[in-house]
Design a protein around this nucleic acid. Structure first.
Lengths: 206, 206
DNA sequence: GATAGATTTAACCAAAAGGTTAAACCAATC
DNA sequence: GATTGGTTTAACCTTTTGGTTAAATCTATC
């Protein structure tokens, strides 16, 4: 730990991310967060006023970071080819670097679906670009031109996001099914990106 | 509630499934489970001895049911065509009927990856058929014959499972992104199956 | 209708949880 | 070196939790 480099606040945040990822909101213990951060438990409440608020800060920071990455990528893409390459890549790279955040997000999504969707909706309202409209129009346009084979934007997203986002969470099941250990190294990440891009391009582009 | 038809044990199980799905293991409250089942809290411990054991029973029953469904389907399939149609269908149908169980499984997978993989491993050891070997050999064989384009069984599974399994959990995010309500009715289920089957067959078959 | 065994209950308990508090500490400013 | 304001601590408090217990009730068998 970089107890001297990081401020108490940052150390609390780092420790909390680990704790929430491992145990979810309800399983997380503020005493363990304190211990992990090497500070007194009272400091959590001094800086973040409550466990719930600390959690909220983490979720919102995470979502902002993901959406910012996605935004950067999506703005650069004008053709389905590029989009179907860029989206899996940005998701997989982000969540392979931030596997703890992926876990926290999944937790939140399962336990409190309205929470995360409210955050997304709020961010989109504030943002200058409107992914809802951009994405919907893109898909309709491409389908009408006969470029892609899937007409419903809902299924387009559901075909792209889960194979990218959930691969880290689902891996233990795959390991069990195939009776083989898989470690998430650089090669695995590159392979996963290639496989998903290939799947999506061949599966949805005409 | 069918308080007269179901036994106390069954009512506890039903109520517990709801509670665990909504709040996860740590967020679940035995008092709420009791209330939901319309029985005294002590009965939970009378029949299931602990909250943890109640949880274990539910997880194991669920896994058994899923694997039995999958087994039935996989035994009937000898060609990649059939497998790539059957797998998404069995997953999507099972978890659309048992969305609460899907949530519990995801919870468990995130919070305690070793737990669920140990259950799977144990079941496979007891089972007469060996999906690990069958699946691995199938994929290798098909790849060598040039039937499929993905050689790694890990990625084959990661391309099939998540778009099927996680679609119900991920839906709130899709709703937020597209700014549209989506209800999971029969038509949605059929569309989802079609879309995934299409994606996988076109994406991985040569 | 007495006995026995399973089922159900209200009342209780110890431990652990999130959160508070008041005092101490520390660094900068005057 | 006294004052100020942010930071840190140990000790404490309240509520809630999973879990227990001993007595009561029901059910069936003889």
């Amino acid at each position: 730990m970089n107890k001297k480099q990081d401020s108490a606040q940052q150390r609390i945040l780092k420790s909390a991310v680990k704790e929430f990822a491992k145990h979810g909101f309800w399983g997380a213990r503020s005493s363990r967060i304190a211990k992990g951060a090497g500070i007194n438990k009272a400091m959590i409440f001094y800086y973040f006023s409550s466990k719930e608020n600390l959690y909220r800060v983490i979720i919102e920071d995470t979502m902002k970071a993901v959406l910012e990455d996605v935004r950067k990528f999506i703005m650069k893409t004008d053709s389905p080819d590029k989009l179907f390459e860029a989206l899996p890549e940005v998701y997989i790279r982000f969540f392979s670097k931030n596997q703890l955040l992926a876990k926290i997000m999944i937790h939140d999504l399962v336990q409190n679906p309205d929470h995360i969707s409210a955050i997304i909706a709020k961010m989109f309202k504030q943002a200058s670009f409107k992914p809802q409209i951009i994405f919907k129009e893109m898909v309709r346009d491409w389908y009408e031109k006969g470029i892609i084979s899937e007409s419903d934007p809902v299924h387009v997203i559901l075909n792209i996001m889960p194979p990218s986002l959930f691969c880290f969470i689902g891996l233990p099941m795959v390991e069990a099914v195939l009776d083989r250990k898989i470690d998430i190294n650089d090669k695995f990440i590159e392979d996963r990106i290639k496989s998903v891009v290939n799947l999506i391009k061949r599966g949805m582009l005409k």
